[in-house]
């Protein structure tokens, strides 16, 4: 057997992880083991405040002060130090509140996704290379905002802003694509379009897709695996088409009156 194969570790590997915001305060995350392979598409679901955003920020390398072992993209993360630029550029994050630069245009916001990839000094003078330009244009076209490219984002609707946030992440060409509630403010048709887009982009790039959502039924159609979080712990971890009514009920505190057929 190939020794390298046996030493294989997953793209995302988390074990014995604990985290609380104020050091000794309430435990926000408590995960015994979680691993995700390259190219997997995973949805995190769970009641509000169960730690979905916190877990995604951890994987994005933005969280400090946790205890345990976290390995992402071949790098063992440190709970005390931020990761280097090149590593950051490989993980794209669509923020729950979009986190756009309000007074910049759609184009400029999407261009910000390239900051980790382009030349750090030349970019300050507005010089971006052809690869950057192509990625930006493609991302804007993909989310259907070509007509609004020069519009300032503070003049857009909530749904349009969400698409800008998605485009910024796509222009980054990440190996791991993280979207924190990417469809929370979209109508059902637009929501399906955005999920379709995220999935298509992940598939085309062979990227891993991590989504959090409050709509398990909807996202189940776009991911392979669903992980239920309850009070910072993994309540269940199953194939997307195998989630039971009991499992959902336990997450949200529903009373399941009829056993699932």
């Amino acid at each position: 057997m190939n020794p390298i194969m046996s030493a294989h570790s997953s793209q995302i590997d988390i074990s014995d992880l604990t985290f609380s915001y104020s050091g000794q305060g309430a435990r926000i995350l408590d995960i015994r083991h979680l691993s995700i392979e390259t190219g997997e598409r995973v949805a995190f679901i769970g009641a509000t405040g169960t730690g979905k955003t916190t877990l995604l920020r951890l994987i994005d390398g933005r969280l400090l002060g946790w205890a345990g072992m976290v390995e992402v993209l071949g790098r063992t993360l440190s709970p005390r130090r931020a990761a280097p630029r090149s590593w950051n550029a490989n993980i794209g994050f669509v923020f729950q509140e979009y986190a756009l630069i309000e007074r910049s245009t759609v184009y400029e916001n999407v261009r910000n996704g390239r900051l980790g990839r382009t030349h750090p000094a030349l970019s300050l003078f507005g010089i971006f290379n052809d690869r950057d330009e192509t990625a930006i244009t493609e991302a804007i076209n993909d989310v259907g905002l070509a007509d609004l490219a020069d519009q300032r984002v503070d003049q857009l609707s909530g749904g349009q802003r969400q698409r800008v946030a998605v485009a910024r992440c796509l222009s980054q060409e990440p190996s791991i694509l993280i979207a924190d509630e990417p469809v929370s403010s979209l109508d059902p048709t637009s929501a399906e379009k955005v999920l379709d887009l995220l999935r298509a982009c992940a598939v085309a790039r062979g990227a891993t897709l991590l989504i959090s959502s409050h709509q398990p039924k909807l996202v189940a159609k776009y991911v392979d695996r669903i992980i239920g979080l309850k009070q910072g712990m993994v309540a269940f971890d199953t194939a997307a088409d195998a989630v039971t009514a009991e499992e959902l009920g336990s997450l949200y505190g529903w009373h399941v009156t009829q056993p699932a057929a």
């Binding site: 931020a82 090149s86 923020f95 986190a99 910000n112 900051l115 980790g116």
Partner: peptide, 11 residues
């Protein structure tokens, strides 16, 4: 949050 997003992209 706006600046954190640029951090996340590797700025």
């Amino acid at each position: 949050g706006s600046l954190a997003a640029l951090d996340s992209a590797g700025a």
